[in-house]
Amino acid sequence: MNNSLIVKVVSQKMVPFIIMLGASIILHGAATPGGGFQGGVVIGAAYILFALGIDAKTARLRLPVIKVKIVESAGVLIYAFTGLGGILLGSNFLANKIVLFPPQGEPGGLFGGGTLIPITIGVGIHVACTVASLYYAFVEYEGEPKPDKETE
């Protein structure tokens, strides 16, 4: 890859701002357009920009695949356990407005969604990590070592 200084510096400096945008979309998921998926894609795109700026190997050292996978699974588990919380507190699966955390705010406000906040955070984490691991899958594909001699 070309070692253009401008590309390298600008892509590194942009990353925190893009992540903040993504986090904002995720946190306001209950009240505004967007939500876990959209914000998660933005955060994943920030990672791709970061990895394109420096080369893929260095990026991989910063964020190993196995860590991505762990956080990815954790996102789903956040969602699932928010749902199970409803059952444990004596109501139905994914029931809202019965869980003490997060605080219940005004409808339309940041905490107005009740249990939607942990759910969108879980979805956001999962989607961000999925986008990152898709990038790994495409960049690091080296062809299959197939036991195949046929030439067709």
């Binding site: 996978k69 699974s73 004596g90 109501s91 699966f93």
Partner: peptide, 30 residues
């Protein structure tokens, strides 16, 4: 109330069967 939801003619198992399988699946490869 794991087996019957309190106020409905339903059972928590209806959602717990897919949920427990999906949660386990996502942890299995780790």
């Amino acid at each position: 109330h794991l087996f019957s939801s309190a106020s409905d003619n339903g059972s928590h198992l209806q959602v717990l069967i897919p949920v427990m399988l999906i949660c386990t699946a996502l942890v299995l490869h780790l």
